[in-house]
């Protein structure tokens, strides 16, 4: 039976309501209400964690306070995506890890406002070490996509 096999089509379609918890909720509310990016300070190693977490995995203690970080930072790594992946946005798009001023860890988001159709032209502008600023959506809804990065 080589050519007469049966295939059973199935989908995994599970809806989740992930609890962001109090820490991430505070972070998203600061973005929604005040256009501020907040990190969490570890009292022991003094790192400002971004994205903010309620504990430091290295020191294994609760983080102690909120720290407002700068609206600008430096690209630590990036990629430009040219392939269409199911479930992901239509290409091309750029994403980058950015170390915002005052933060100790880099946070990933889209880099917008750059023509990506010509790769060679694009990578002349987008580089590791390049300065970017945070830009906010007009209508924010408490998601990581409420903001993105733009080259300055």
């Amino acid at each position: 039976m080589k050519d007469d096999l049966i295939f059973i089509a199935q989908r995994w379609d599970i809806e989740f309501k992930h609890a962001a918890g109090e820490t991430a909720s505070t972070f998203f509310k600061a973005i929604m209400q005040r256009r501020e990016i907040l990190g969490r300070l570890c009292p022991k190693c003094k790192r400002v964690l971004l994205p903010p977490r309620s504990f430091c995995e290295r020191c294994f203690v609760e983080t102690s306070e909120w720290v407002k970080v700068g609206g600008e930072g430096k690209i630590q790594s990036f990629t430009i995506v040219y392939e269409k992946f199911e479930g992901l946005p239509p290409p091309p798009y750029a994403i980058a890890y950015v170390l915002l001023d005052g933060a100790s860890t880099a946070m990933v988001n889209f880099v917008k406002g750059l023509d990506l159709n010509n790769l060679d032209q694009a990578i002349k502008k987008i580089k590791i070490g390049a300065k970017v600023k945070v830009a906010f959506k007009r209508k924010r809804e408490g998601r990581i996509t409420d903001f993105w990065y733009e080259l300055v």
Binding site: S77, F78, T79, V108, N109, F110, I128, T145
Partner: peptide, 25 residues
Amino acid sequence: DPIYERQVAINAVNMCSFQAMRHMK
């Protein structure tokens, strides 16, 4: 992470692109 990262279109390919970029730099 569905809270902080998933919606930024990361997958197993581009997580390695980030590694390559840093190695090159």
